[in-house]
Amino acid sequence: MTPEEKTNWTEREGRLERFPIGRATRDAYGEVLAALGADHPEIVVLDGDLAKSTKSAVFAERFPDRFFNAGIAEANMAGIASGLAACGKIPFISSFASFLICKTFDQLRLGVSYSKLPVKLVGSHGGITLGPDGVSQMSIEDIALAASLPGMTVVVPADEVSTGALVPQVYAHPGAVFLRTGRNKVPRIYDPGDTDFQLGKGRVLRKGGDVALVACGIMVAEAIYAAQVLEAEGVSCTVVDMHTVKPIDEELLVLVARECGAVVTAEEHQIYGGLGAIVSSVLGRNHPVPLEHVALRDTFAKSGEPEELKKLYGLTWREIVIAVERVLGRKRRELSEE
């Protein structure tokens, strides 16, 4: 039996202090976008026949003159957004994250990124937890693709409160931004009204000395759960909500790596090219420490219920705990070798 199999996971689960379930991040987006629309006539919203799902429909209802349903034609929608932005508008375009990024990539590359235009891309149903619809609707490459575009800011908020606080900053940011939202109701990590979020700055949710957990999106709650479990077992964790995946908060990353000497990243995304890869690049260049990633291990998911999929593809606090045990083993070995 491996040590992992000997572990009593039920007992560990009993120690979790779960957050209350809040709204979906896409709901917070829809509401705040519509509110912004009242003060900012230059906001124009387009959707690719998914307005009811992405929640851009809330804006559409209040400002029908500034909303255009582009139909099932995402590449065209991205091109239109480029033209609108060139004329001084702030276009918000939305679809499922997969279609929004994959189907428009060349248009985004030339018409948005290279053209330095402030188009705001809002992809809902990010990751695999949209569930039963399956792979064609899931997005596990969107962060990597969006982050690869020069100048593109990439934001993956964890809950409704942080989403609500970040959307006005996405609007105000002078460049292009990709904001990934989710389909499901998710744990509300922050108190309603909390506005302590800054684009480009990670937020430290817990301070500890043994290992730093750096997460984005739905994995932030899981990272906190992992920290709760580990704390009771004598491992103290720093937890960072890295809602802005790019440009990543390098200063904070190097700081927590220095303080803890070990880092674990967690994201609802393919292991290559996402948060983990970006953190790895930053730490490799600045302050290498033992590092582990919790992410999809070079695989697509499949149809299923969200919670089942999280278990099946290793996106829960359990995998974070296991990754911490691994990374601490490496840290200890490296210290004893020194």
């Binding site: 039963p132 399956g134 792979v135 064609s136 499949k302 149809s303 299923g304 219920e305 099946l312």
Partner: peptide, 14 residues
């Protein structure tokens, strides 16, 4: 078993 983790009938064709 449509759309279930223990089945192969995905929500969209595979």
């Amino acid at each position: 078993t449509l759309r279930r983790t223990d089945g192969r009938l995905e929500g969209h064709p595979d």
